[in-house]
Amino acid sequence: MSHPRPLHCAPVELRQIETNGICANVAVAGSGPAVVLLHGFPHTWRLWSEIIGPLSARYRVIAPDLRGFGATSRASDGYDAGTLAADIAGILDALGEPTAAVVAIDAGTPVAVLLALRYPDLVRRLVVMEALVGTLPGAEDFLVAGPPWWFGFHSVPGLAETVLLGHEARYIAWFLATGTRGRGVREDIHDAFIDAYTGADALRCAFSYYRALPTSAHQIDQAVATHRLTTPTLAIGAHPVGNALERQLRPIADDLTGHVIPDCGHIIPLDRPQELLSLVMPFLAGEQTA
């Protein structure tokens, strides 16, 4: 399937920013109120390639490679949501941004939620997609048959990176095809993602997110025990998560809108970018999206 390049192509500057003991590779584009974009697995900042241009017409878009991913430092530890949230807070401070809207998907979602819970004055608006947040109630239907198979595979220390070494391209390609319901992604993005996840150390970093999930879940439990999610929040689902994330957030959020995009795979920003923009743009502008 051919994928046309986006019509809006704002200039993107890649910056190296010291934060919380790492050097983060950060794509920055546009001017205006800050909007931070947080990717998941198996992505880099280029997950947002179809989104950055339109957003940068109104906002200063800040899209980092998360700790251990892409061109950001392959740290030995710190893959829990709390440390990652501190990474993002440090990036915003280095860029002189006192507040930001945060848009996150997959592994970036628990980071974004914890960022909003711990730094409520920092996060103006929150958009989260296609993920679960720790072990908060509400996702029982999604988890009735257990978590997706790769969660266990990735969680065993040292196993997945050993088994997959030399087979990274086929493994990552499976996630890209499945995450777009077979439609696939642009060839240049496909190749960039595979390159970013090739090699034992790159795989170790990626799977460290899964190995830190119990710690991240505990951090979220602690945060919601004493704080509510006061930031206006938009929870977007697709296939397979659907509205499970919305159900998790509903009891702890003061201002929550939920939406499920039909016929859309897990990798929403690449599978249905225009539908995503039609939800995110008015929400960021403070308009009603429900």
Rank of each mutant, 00 (worst) to 15 (best):
S2E: 15
P4G: 09
H8L: 15
C9L: 15
A10Y: 12
P11C: 06
V12W: 00
E13T: 14
R15G: 08
Q16R: 15
E18T: 13
T19Q: 06
N20Y: 09
A24G: 00
N25I: 02
V26E: 03
A27G: 08
A27Y: 00
G30L: 02
G32F: 07
A34V: 13
V35M: 12
V35N: 10
F41P: 07
H43L: 11
H43K: 06
A57V: 07
R58I: 09
I62D: 05
R67D: 02
R67A: 03
G68E: 05
G70S: 09
A71Y: 11
A75W: 02
S76I: 09
D77K: 13
D80E: 12
G82N: 03
L84Q: 11
A85K: 02
A85Q: 01
D87N: 00
D87T: 01
I88A: 10
I88P: 06
G90E: 02
I91S: 01
D93C: 07
D93K: 14
E97R: 13
T99H: 11
A101Q: 02
A101C: 15
A101H: 11
V103L: 13
A104E: 06
P110I: 05
P110F: 12
R118K: 11
V123F: 09
R124G: 11
L126W: 12
T135V: 10
L136A: 02
G138Q: 01
V144T: 13
V144D: 14
A145E: 14
A145Y: 08
P157R: 12
L164V: 09
G166E: 11
E168N: 09
R170H: 12
Y171R: 08
I172P: 00
I172N: 01
I172E: 02
W174E: 15
G184T: 05
G184V: 03
R186S: 13
E187C: 14
D188I: 12
D191P: 06
D191T: 12
I194V: 13
G199Q: 08
D201Y: 07
L203S: 03
L203Q: 11
R204S: 06
R204M: 03
C205I: 05
S208C: 06
A212M: 07
L213M: 15
P214G: 07
S216H: 07
S216L: 09
H218Y: 12
D221Q: 14
V224P: 04
V224H: 00
V224W: 05
T226L: 10
T226V: 15
H227S: 15
L234S: 12
L234Q: 13
P240V: 14
P240H: 09
P240I: 14
V241H: 00
N243D: 14
Q248E: 05
L249T: 01
I252L: 03
D254N: 10
D255K: 15
G258T: 10
H259C: 14
V260H: 00
V260F: 04
V260N: 00
G265F: 00
I267P: 02
L270C: 10
L270P: 02
D271Q: 08
R272K: 14
L276A: 03
L277D: 00
L279P: 10
M281Y: 00
G286N: 09
E287P: 08
